[in-house]
Write a protein that binds this DNA or RNA. Structure first.
Lengths: 204, 204
DNA sequence: CGAGAAGTTGAAGCGTGTCAAATGCAGTGG
DNA sequence: CCACTGCATTTGACACGCTTCAACTTCTCG
């Protein structure tokens, strides 16, 4: 799905790795979010006449296509659905704010550490961590576009993380031996990912 | 309102300038969003047990405080309200994505130009531009925290924008003589701010 | 009129980008 | 099974945009 397009359906991400991205007129490209397996659900709807960003698959992607009219009917039939979607979107904004902070204030090393922490936790909560490791299909170019660094520099920083024993990453497999140390380095706090089960305001 | 707190009420921004910000453990600070007069409405709700970010006033702020129970009741009574809030939040994410792009990919000069375009348009739509100018209470430090630059560098870039005749900014007043040229420089596109009145998906 | 906040200036340093080439790896066809 | 191809990763040398630090000036407001 490209920037500027008007999507024909609403989409619900079911499985696979993907990303949202934005580009500048001259081609500079920023990945602004990832989908990973295990994400509860990421609804992709159009609030605009044109998409303000693009969506790309990283691995083959399983998505649910929903007709706009059906979607609309669903919202009418299930009065609580809109609230749930709203709440979901509140989480999305929180994540996006964290990303703004990430590229804005953290050093190259911290940025990578932070993104790895986030992805790792999301995969973990979805049950995708086995023996402390997981599939990790992102290339260094992907990581570069998500962290606003050059692929060359991502490479060097990953080497440093490996040297420090903070990550093992090879052949599209990622292991994090000591997540707490990595969180520490990244200044990572999982607040922003977890809509508290105990938040009183927004019953689903 | 501080990061980590649990707000007692829901808040609706009515008037005045304010910002949302996030900080790192060592004090580095990022402004992740501004409120400006004329914004249709910005609801401040808690989706988390703790706030993932702080909110600060820049000018005196007029806000509506809403009791959580009242808010909840309101959501029940007005089935379409949740949809509206959802839609509103979709705009917020879009704006936040643009900010991620801004600090991630644009040069210092472009970043400033972009943020000025955004604020100027939002003020304009709210009817706050008179004779091509408006009150502009942000300091260079504020702009620095929003653009992830140092105040010193913001200063130099603002001078360059002035030298090029792209902005006039003094005594807390901002004028943009030729918005199109500034947009051009910034790579600005207002897609992300305007939920199309003609978007079919999300009737309010 | 005085004091603190905001804005301005210059010189020097550093984190990350740029460029260019080499190496490794996976899939494909002969 | 191996040569071939294209993409991903790695390495080194050098460049530059932005930061840092520190001092000075100008505003704002009690």
């Amino acid at each position: 799905m490209r920037e500027g397009e008007r999507p024909e359906f609403a989409y619900l991400m079911i499985d696979g790795w993907g990303c949202r991205y934005k580009t500048l007129p001259d081609g500079r490209r920023q990945i602004v979010a990832f989908f990973v397996p295990g994400d509860r659900f990421d609804v992709n709807v159009m609030a605009f006449k044109e998409m303000d960003h693009g969506v790309a698959a990283i691995t083959p992607l399983k998505v649910l296509e929903i007709d706009w009219d059906d979607f609309d009917r669903l919202l009418d039939e299930r009065p609580k659905l809109a609230r749930t979607l709203w709440r979901q979107e509140l989480v999305s904004v929180a994540v996006q704010r964290e990303w703004t902070l990430n590229v804005g204030q953290r050093s190259a090393l911290e940025r990578l550490a932070h993104i790895l922490c986030e992805l790792y936790l999301r995969l973990d909560w979805g049950g995708y961590i086995k023996n402390g490791g997981c599939r990790f299909p992102l290339t260094q170019v992907d990581l570069a576009e998500a962290t606003s660094l050059t692929p060359v520099h991502v490479n060097r920083m990953l080497q440093e993380l490996r040297r420090e024993g903070l990550i093992e990453l090879q052949h599209r497999m990622l292991t994090i031996p000591d997540l707490d140390r990595l969180k520490q380095l990244a200044g990572f706090n999982d607040h922003y990912l977890r809509p508290g089960a105990d938040a009183p305001a927004l019953p689903t």
